[in-house]
């Protein structure tokens, strides 16, 4: 479960404070697919960064599975990111010198895991996203959709309870985007939550819950009937 209590984020642009996120209380249950929508600059990515322990709130507290994110040092936050959170970015952000398998193994290796079982798990995940034939290919040998599937596999590698995806289909054509989305939605299970930031209302339609943000504030919080991607 994710709990946000009076979380806000204010930046300074020069000497001018910019309120990217106004004080927010929010609880997100386990095992749900949550879409965060809103226009550019509304605060969607700011919220995602805070949830992903990439950024610190100006006020308030954030708890993931009861673990408080605020007030802990960088190493502890890194550990949380590594073990509890998976990231999928719009621009894939794979390491260009590593193969698909190595990219997926990256979080595990950073955690010091490099045993055969870990490698086997990485292979399995890549198999699940349909890339069992592309294990040894480097990013420049993969298509956009394939790269994003590798990125999703990387996000799932440590079996995190939370996956955060920032415009995961924003750089893909419709068909490829659908495929990636299918993988992401299938990742939601009883213990894993997936939070997507998107502009695309069709993606939002798939979510269990849609949070709309405008000018740093949640202006609507709609729980929907979950739809399966055809």
């Amino acid at each position: 479960m994710i709990e946000l209590s009076q979380v806000s984020r204010t930046y300074l642009e020069g000497s001018t404070p910019v309120h990217a996120l106004l004080p927010l209380d929010l609880v997100i249950d386990r095992g749900s697919l949550v879409a965060i929508v809103g226009p550019s600059g509304s605060g969607k990515s700011t919220l995602l960064n805070l949830l992903g322990a990439l950024d610190r709130p100006s006020t308030g507290s954030i708890k993931i599975d009861g673990v408080e994110l605020t007030g802990i040092d960088d190493d502890a936050r890194t550990r949380i990111r590594r073990e509890k959170i998976g990231f999928v970015f719009q621009f894939f952000n794979l390491l260009p010198t590593m193969t698909a398998l190595e990219n997926v193994l990256l979080p595990a290796k950073l955690a010091g895991k490099k045993d055969a079982a870990t490698v086997e798990r990485a292979r399995q995940i890549l198999g699940r996203v349909g890339l069992s034939q592309r294990l040894e290919h480097r990013p420049d040998q993969l298509s956009g959709g394939e790269m994003q599937r590798v990125a999703v596999a990387r996000a799932l590698m440590m079996d995190p309870p939370l996956v955060l995806a920032d415009e995961p289909t924003g750089n893909l054509d419709t068909h490829t985007g659908q495929e990636v989305l299918k993988i992401l939605t299938s990742a939601v299970d009883g213990r894993r939550t997936v939070i997507l930031v998107t502009h695309d209302p069709r993606i939002a339609d798939l979510a269990d819950r849609v949070l709309t943000i405008r000018d740093g504030a949640v202006v609507s919080d709609v729980r929907t009937q979950k739809n399966a991607v055809a």
Partner: peptide
């Protein structure tokens, strides 16, 4: 940034 996001320490 990506490395840090996926769990690389400082």
């Amino acid at each position: 940034g990506v490395l840090r996001a996926v769990g690389a320490t400082q």
